[in-house]
């Protein structure tokens, strides 16, 4: 039986929780794969190698930068799940800041901490086979990916923008109708355009779509009355950028 392992790095647990949130499908999935390592769900653990590894979280400590290589070596297919694993997550906001100063703000004794200056995606350290984006990931995409791999086909994961999902869902465009700032045109689809359905602009939690038109997006945001720093903060929350990143690989 196909073996599945779930791993955690710096994260909120939400993406692996998405698997336990598949209330209607969880037991059926457990009938078809052997859950060999999933500490949040079971204390039983089997040694690798594993057919499929789901990796949540970003790399933020020297120990984790080493551990991800061990996990890669034990995994036939490695899938990163969620914004932390695929892009560094909200904690990558540290990447443009002074981490020593950050540590001193939060912790009385920063010298007790062992942390890297950056929060980096898994792919900055090891080869990744598939990426599931989102903060959190979409349950449907997770089930699609596991299901596809079980029958040996490529998962159907969209690369277009949230705008397409709005059209499909018959959402009114929140920029046009309400003047709400929206990152939908430059954000990867997958959530089902939830925010616009709630009359709120997309805030980019699935990360950038393929080939985003950044200039047009900047003009669009300005047209809603947003200023430069507000635009920068909105765009960077789940997209720390693609500058060369630190790390050990």
């Amino acid at each position: 039986m196909t073996t599945l392992a779930v791993w955690k790095f710096a994260s909120c647990d939400g993406c692996q929780l998405s698997l336990l949130d598949c209330e209607d499908e969880l037991l059926a999935v457990a009938d078809r794969v052997r859950i060999a390592h999933f500490p949040e769900a079971t204390r039983a653990t089997e040694p690798g190698p594993y057919d499929i590894s789901l990796v949540e979280g970003s790399i933020t400590t020297p120990g984790d930068a080493r551990r991800i290589h061990e996990i890669r070596a034990m995994s036939r297919i490695l899938i990163t799940i969620g914004a932390c694993a695929t892009a560094g997550g909200v904690q990558a906001l540290r990447n443009s800041a002074d981490v020593a100063e950050y540590a001193s703000v939060v912790y009385a004794r920063p010298e007790y901490l062992d942390t890297l200056a950056t929060s980096t995606p898994i792919a900055a350290h090891v080869d990744v086979d598939y990426e599931l984006h989102g903060c959190p990931i979409d349950r449907g995409q997770l089930l699609e990916t596991i299901g596809a791999l079980l029958v040996g086909r490529k998962p159907d994961l969209p690369e277009h923008s949230v705008c397409f999902e709005c059209k499909r869902r018959n959402n009114v465009c929140v920029v046009v109708a309400y003047g709400e700032p929206c990152l939908g045109p430059v954000t990867r689809a997958g959530c089902g355009a939830i925010c616009p359905a709630f009359r709120r602009g997309c805030f980019g939690c699935f990360g950038p779509a393929e080939r985003p038109n950044d200039e047009a997006e900047a003009a669009l945001l300005e047209s809603t009355g947003m200023s430069g720093p507000d635009i920068e903060r909105m765009r960077r929350l789940f997209d720390p950028g693609t500058e060369p990143v630190g790390g050990t690989s």
Partner: peptide
């Protein structure tokens, strides 16, 4: 669990932003 420094990077964010940002501390009780 590695430190994520939420209290540090909340500084300089607009007063409307903490609900979305701090939700990311925990996927079980956002």
């Amino acid at each position: 669990e590695p430190p994520r420094f939420f209290e540090a990077f909340l500084r300089g964010r607009r007063h409307t932003e903490p609900p979305d940002i701090t939700a990311r501390i925990c996927g079980i009780c956002p």
